[in-house]
Nucleic acid binder design. Structure first.
Lengths: 140, 140
DNA sequence: GTAGATGCAAAACGTTTGCAACCTA
DNA sequence: TAGGTTGCAAACGTTTTGCATCTAC
């Protein structure tokens, strides 16, 4: 799990300014071990910085992705979500409400090797998502 | 692999009209064993029916998905693609150009069972995509 | 002081909706 | 002939862009 100090260090090394908006966004992302949409991050950021714009959230979440501080999780049906960088894992998504939890399972390297062997692709990564219903939505 | 006759039969059973637009869209989808975006289907349809609207493509591709004639493939970075219904399989996607090929590998049921066991989700399906570079893009 | 960042407004993009005209069964 | 379907235009929600202002270093 990436520390705030490491993140700040990365910004400094690349001469990227540590604005209050960035600092607070890093705070939010690194503290909660969750998955957020841009809109959710914008709402949270607004609580402490009412004047922040959603453009700034987009700018910075994309910047953080490029820097490898944040990972974008793309999955069907819904918006992208973002999570603070941690070890590789998979996700379960609720088809009803979009809630998402992590699944730590050994990377399916052998399936990647198989896919590489039967195709003319140079495969660099893979992604596995599970879809289902969370316990909250199950009760309804 | 679903036949045109089966598809037409499904429409008849549900009292869904076989318009020329639908017929031609079924023709395109069922003949080529490919993955198309809505825009690509619209362009192909336009070759034989210049007056067709993209709304009709959306209407019908969604209808076909609901009827189970067509499968929507959602993956990161890009638009949804659609393919004519066939046996379950996974996909490799080129990160450069979006080209997509099928991978026939036994369904990872045991991973689904594991994910179910460690979560409070009722898991109904999963999805595995591989990302890489196709041979065309590799050369560039 | 200055290059980089912010925040507003407008544009862009894919997709959906409302509705009058049309056509399949 | 009647309800399903089409195709146009407008609306929608998310994301990107242009740009003047501001600010971290």
């Amino acid at each position: 799990m990436l520390s705030i100090e490491n993140a700040v260090q990365t910004l400094k090394e690349k001469n990227i300014r540590l604005t209050p908006q960035r600092h607070e966004l890093i705070n939010i992302l690194s503290k909660g071990n969750k998955h957020w949409t841009v809109e959710e991050l914008y709402q949270l950021l607004n609580e402490s910085m009412p004047s922040v714009s959603i453009t700034t959230v987009y700018n910075n979440i994309n910047l953080f992705c490029e820097l490898g501080l944040v990972k974008e999780i793309q999955f069907g049906e819904a918006l992208s979500k973002y999570e603070w960088k941690k070890e590789d894992h998979y996700h379960i998504v609720c088809s009803e409400c979009g809630e998402m939890v992590d699944v730590w399972y050994p990377a399916l390297k052998e399936v990647e090797v198989f896919a590489q062997s039967i195709s003319k692709f140079d495969i660099s990564s893979h992604n596995l998502q599970f879809y289902g219903t969370c316990s909250n939505c199950e009760q309804k």
